[in-house]
Design a protein around this nucleic acid. Sequence first.
DNA 1: AAGCTCACG
DNA 2: ACGTACGTGAGCTTG
Length: 455
Amino acid sequence: ESLCDHFHESQTTMDPKEPGYQAVYLRIYKKVVAKVKKELKDNDLWSLYEELELPLVTALAEMEAHGILVDPKKLSVISQELEATMEKLTETIYAEAGEEFNINSPKQLGVILFEKLGLPVLKRTKTGPSTSAEVLEELSDHPIVASVLEYRQVAKLKSTYTDSLAELISPETKRIHTTFNQTVTATGRLSSTHPNLQNIPVRTKEGRRIREAFVAPEGHVLLMADYSQIELRLLAHLSGDQVLAEAFRSGQDIHAQTAAEVFGLDLDEVTDEERSAAKAINFGIIYGISSFGLAKGINLTRAQAQEYIDSYFLRYPMVKVYLDGLVEQGKKEGYVQTLSKRRRYLPNLKSRNYALRSFAARTAMNTPIQGSAADIIKLAMLKVYRALKDAGLKTRLLLQVHDELVLETPLDELHLAAHLVKKQMEEVYPLDVPLKVGVFYGPNWRDVKSFDYEE
DNA sequence: AAGCTCACG
DNA sequence: ACGTACGTGAGCTTG
Ligand SMILES: [Mg+2]
């Protein structure tokens, strides 16, 4: 961007083929490098650039070039099954509606559900009644709604994850080569495009079938390593809250411990429901808590949600001090920052518009946590990349999915690689609480089992 | 191109 | 009362 500005400032209208163009370009380029370098140094961002982001480029480039092997036959079988299911559901839905219409159109679906069948409008979008899954769940006693929910799930899998993915398999390598974007997100996370390999289904049994098509080549296995609760561990570290830190040092289930603290129970008397509520509270804390959001997360009244939040902050007082401090710092300095000093500017912390100001406050609370987690896994990627190279192993990094790395390893390297990856990830950047990494391996991305460290 | 919806962490 | 959970990318419809 700066280079382009200088080109225009310099009124360079030269043709790239013209003699002397390269000299002009180089002169401007050097000026821009000096300017950007100074700006980074002045803002304490130079080491983030030089020691983290710049060397990471090489690791990401190799990951993209290597790609991940995908079995088109598996995708094709799944696609055909989904096609058949969709045809049946389509007929069922038309019969229940008493007419044919485009089920993929929220507008046409809305006419059927809310006008023809007279179902209640529970939520609106800018353009009309919402037909989102959240709304349809509430209305799913009606048979057509249950069918539409199932249709949506199947249609999503087919269009996004079977047909489109198959088209992106390279005929030369038989692999899918994503692009990892290093300069897209506001928090420092990576993103992935063409295709996005950071949102492959995992939460439902049907969806997980897609992962079976991501395979290791003959004589290899996929190795997966994911951080356990990295964002909450960072919250414990960054806030200095000793109750939360001690919870992680004890190694017990963090959500159950939160439930015990918030609801005043012994750890062994926490029910599944209480644990689930505590999990929603922990999510809320990371997202920048609001009683409205928490209430929506666990079907409470706002007043009850507020009581839970108050109770949480009573038990974890330093977390409240920390989160309030982030908003204050954001207002005073204009930005919040992550472990690596990465900044996010939040001018709306001073907005007179309540919605904009609240959004900025939640962002101020979330960005240092989400962004520091991104810093840590990026550093871990560098360390894993270098350690594999130093050890002379053939194991390759394939994917990063925010708190998880996916690698491909020759069977005879599995033991060494699993230990190396776990060690580099857990010891990457010592915090006040331990970082814990789960390691799994298998023939494909679905059928993985825990790597047993006795092996 | 924008809006809605939904997949992931 | 305001009006939201944080961060992404992609497919589909609509205009
Ligand atoms: Mg995890």
